[in-house]
Design a binder for these strands. Structure first.
Length: 846
RNA sequence: GCCCUCGUGGUGAAAUUGGUAGACACAAAGGACUUAAAAUCCUUGCCGCUUGCGGAGUGCCAGUUCGAGUCUGGCCGAGGGCACCA
């Protein structure tokens, strides 16, 4: 028998699919659609194992749905704007466009070698004018709808990348790409008004039943809704200020009020601009730590003003007003009322400045003499020491009561606050989508007329300049609108804007007048299954959900507003890490295992330190190159292995042995195929063999069920089981009956995972044209014979095989003949017998 | 600190609804074939005694149930998210 030549066969099928545009899709209203989308890749150079896993998972689903008769949209594109291109281009004196496009070409070629069922006619690239011109139109639409605005704001400034970062792009106080410590800087920036949709984005999560709870929780926390009230505190002092507004979730602790704290960026700080002490204090604030954690744990410091705030519920009480480093300007009103007894931060602050600490809530198990001592009490309880609030249950009842009173007295009102801040989209970078506006002499913003779109990026520019390269493009910056000289906006859009609507573009990739066609959206959207990494749980997914709402705002472009019906987040691909004696990272290629010990390939006398398995990353060198693996083992083997070892939502360990065994399995399947082919030529096709019919039905049922549930690792196990069974079956049975028909069905079940192999075998058996997902005979699934587990006091003692639906009486007669059971129950009181048909018989004895 | 998720053999993991725990695979040990190796195939896999049988057993402790990996409560451990959000 010849070996399975995966090189030739995979190449043949890939060519066949490509030549026949096998995966090209168009609207077909007679068919149910299925939009299967995997997060599109950033064209960094080569594909990595994470891509292999992500796109294999998606491809299995897309192929399965196609076989089920769905009209499947399965597109692919490129998230092609972004910093790496600009940096690579700068360092190598290239055009970012050339760098990017060449990476795209390489990666597209690699993806094709995986045998993905992608409609490449719909390929898009966010850096092409064809794409970003529509994004510019969207931007202007949002500007018109007042969902985009410009404001001066403190921003997260990355000093290495010389650009602004969104809050979400700052991780532990460092830039997510550069790792540089992020600085605060005041700049004029463009913002998307995402906070306008806070409530709606929160509510929308309720309907996303097939999203992982983890992701929904993360989004809920990020949106951060809290219920409370705003309170106007009257103030007295030497400044022309009457009132300071605060937001609080605990107005019920107002009688524990002992200071009022302002953010150093609070408008009132303008009165202190010339106060040297204040400036010194401000300086000190900026020094306290850089990571969020350091700030959270760090010292609380304050600057006392001469102002005094009056307790709205007790006008005789006046407390000092401080500036404090722990108050954030962009949450609430940048001012908080301090209640040290029941808020740990306030407690720390009060201790430091020797302010009064009053106890106004007691825990349920304490009496009225309870006093806060070493730490604040923030838990539930009963209000004490608070005049008319005494006895109220805290927090719920007491908060509602206090709000009612404050509203009656017009001292405050109910308020819902969100943590979600508006999305800053300005980036001081070249390689991004230009923002289609210009400024006149007075600095007024003018939207570019549509006729002047797209605003194209200038070419042949100098990327070596500091800051934004577009800023130094004086020719490009000058523009004339309606005869007036103006200056272009030189900021470009955050690349997350590009990925917020690409799923819409895939529906109408060639549409010229607008980003999409309504007809296409109505048919294809929403994405039925979205698949990608959990690292996008907040940013990309929240922005996309916002973008759909924003585009639809005021002009119903479409009827659905949630872009992704179902979400699946796959785990990462991990590999052991290796280091040499000097702690330098080693690539798996440099390492060899001899006698259970890891040593250097180049020098087997030198041992290698094996570290924990971590997600593959270039910096730790624990990467395996997919191209090399595909070349050596074939796409089907890689697909099989990447799915086999762990559930798709969990991390998977890359294992060379596992990879080899997947490869061998394909070879074994080929051996089985040839044996079956040889034997079925003289099988009696008109006769039934119930055994193989039943087995096939079980296989189809199991694989179908596991496909629906994303149990792709179990499908691989099902495939191994099927092989183990069939190889025995073929050896055992000399006279075959209807194996061929059943075997073909099994091959179709295998085809989503190993499409080249399965199609080759099907054609080898004479199948031409379309195949469909096989049906199975449900009645065959039920075993005619079942195992009854005989238990004594809940412990398994014996298994007896009986006909299905045998009644209790009959089973009891059988058991009477069973020595083992009889021995166990003799001389014992049988108190009760529990019988579950076809499953169990349990004796309770004393 | 707050929130979420998860704890099953040497390892990755299976176990539709509470009903035979460990499917499937990796690694290991032993064996067969071979002059030898590779490849392939078979067996084993916690404890106790004689091929069989008995016992323990799904992080720990309780509970519900005839019966718990699965349900409930508490504890311990690991991973992830958020973190001066008032």
């Amino acid at each position: 028998m010849n070996r399975y030549n995966f090189q030739d066969i995979e190449k043949k099928w890939q060519k066949y699919w490509e030549d026949n545009k096998f995966f090209k899709t168009s609207i077909d209203k007679k068919k149910k659609k299925f939009y299967c989308l995997e997060m599109f890749p950033y064209p960094s150079g080569k594909i990595h194992m994470g891509h292999v896993r992500n796109y294999t998972i998606g491809d299995v689903l897309a192929r399965y749905k196609t076989l089920q008769g769905f009209n499947v949209l399965h597109p692919m594109g490129w998230d092609a704007f972004g910093m790496p291109a600009e940096n690579a281009a700068r360092d190598n004196n290239l055009d970012p466009k050339i760098w990017t496009n060449s990476n795209i070409a390489t990666m597209k070629n690699q993806l094709k070698k995986l045998g993905l069922s992608i409609d490449w006619d719909r390929e898009i690239s966010t850096c092409s004018e064809d794409y970003y011109k529509h994004q510019q139109i969207f931007f202007l639409e949002l500007l018109e709808k007042k969902l985009v605005y410009r404001k001066e704001n403190y921003v997260n400034w990355d000093p290495v990348d010389q650009t602004v970062l969104a809050n979400e792009q700052v991780i532990d106080g460092k830039g997510w790409r550069s790792g540089a410590i992020v600085e605060r800087k005041k700049l004029n920036q463009w913002f998307f008004d995402i906070s306008k949709f806070s409530q709606d984005l929160l509510d929308g999560l309720e309907n996303l039943e097939t999203w992982p709870n983890k992701v929904k929780t993360m989004q809920r926390n990020w949106i951060g809704k809290s219920f409370g009230c705003e309170i106007d505190f009257k103030v007295e002092g030497d400044l022309p200020i009457d009132i300071i507004k605060c937001f609080t979730t605990r107005p019920d602790t107002l009688f524990g009020f002992s200071f009022l704290a302002l953010s150093i960026d609070h408008p009132i700080s303008s009165y202190f601009e010339k106060n040297k002490e204040f400036l010194k204090f401000k300086e000190e604030c900026s020094k306290t730590g850089t990571t969020e954690e350091a700030i959270a744990v760090g010292d609380k410091i304050g600057f006392k003003t001469n102002l005094e705030a009056i307790n709205p519920l007790d006008s005789t009480q006046k407390v000092p007003v401080y500036f404090a480093n722990f108050v954030l300007m962009d949450y609430g009103f940048g001012a908080v009322f301090g209640c040290p007894g029941h808020d740990q931060r306030d407690f720390d602050f009060a201790k430091k400045y020797k302010l009064q600490i009053k106890t106004v809530v007691r825990p349920p198990n304490e009496n009225e003499n309870f006093k806060v001592l070493d730490e604040a009490y923030a838990g539930p309880g009963i209000i004490i020491n608070s005049k008319f609030l005494n006895g109220f249950e805290a927090p719920i009842n007491s908060v509602l009561e206090t709000i009612k009173i404050l509203e009656e007295k017009k001292l405050g009102k109910k308020k819902v606050n969100f943590r979600l801040k508006d999305w800053g989209v300005s980036r001081q970078r070249y390689w991004g989508c230009p923002i289609p506006v210009a400024y006149d002499d007075t600095g007024k913003v003018h939207a570019l007329p549509k006729s002047m779109l797209p605003v194209k990026l200038p070419e042949n520019i100098n990327l070596k300049v500091k800051g934004n390269p577009l800023d130094s493009q004086t020719d490009w910056k000058q523009i004339i609108i309606d005869g007036k000289k103006m200056t272009r906006e030189t900021d470009t859009l955050d690349t997350f804007v590009c990925s917020s609507w690409y799923y819409l573009r895939f529906c109408s990739p060639k549409e010229n007048n607008y980003g999409f066609k309504k007809e296409d959206i109505d048919y294809w959207m929403p994405v039925d299954q979205y698949i990608g990494g959990v690292e996008h749980a907040i940013l990309h997914l929240l922005y996309s959900r916002f973008f759909m709402r924003a585009i639809n705002y005021n002009n119903k472009n479409f009827n659905i507003i949630e872009p992704f019906q179902s979400l699946f987040t796959q785990g990462m691909v991990c590999h052991e890490t290796y280091r040499d004696e000097k702690n330098n990272w080693l690539s798996p290629d440099d390492v060899e295992k001899i006698n259970n010990k890891f040593v250097l390939k180049s020098d087997p006398n030198k041992s290698v330190k094996v570290g924990p398995s971590e997600s593959m990353s270039k910096s730790k060198k624990n990467v395996i190159d997919p191209e090399f693996i595909i070349k050596n083992y074939g796409a089907d083997s890689v697909r099989l292995f990447i799915l086999s070892d762990s559930p798709p939502e969990k991390d998977v360990q890359w294992s060379e042995q596992g990879m080899v065994s997947a490869y061998k399995f394909i070879q074994k399947l080929w051996g089985l195929h040839n044996e079956i082919k040889m034997k079925i030529s003289n099988e009696k096709k008109d006769q039934q063999d119930k055994e193989i019919d039943k087995f096939t039905s079980q296989v189809i049922s199991k694989i179908t069920h596991n496909l629906e549930k994303f149990n792709y690792n179990v499908i691989v196990a099902n495939m191994y089981e099927t092989y183990n069974y069939l190889i025995n079956y073929v050896k055992k049975n000399k006279n075959l009956k209807n194996l061929e028909e059943n075997y073909k069905k099994i091959l179709i079940c295998f085809s989503p995972v190993i499409p080249h192999f399965a199609n080759e075998c099907l054609v080898d058996l004479g199948i031409k044209g379309d195949v469909n997902w096989p049906n199975y005979d449900k009645s065959l699934l039920d075993d005619e014979k079942v195992n009854i587990v005989v238990q004594i006091n809940g412990k398994k003692r014996e298994i007896i095989q009986v006909k299905k639906d045998t009644d209790e009486k009959e089973i009891l007669t059988l058991i009477k003949k069973n020595d083992k059971i009889q021995n166990l129950i003799k001389n014992k009181d049988v108190v009760k017998k529990i019988f579950v048909p076809n499953k169990i018989l349990n004796y309770l004895i004393k």
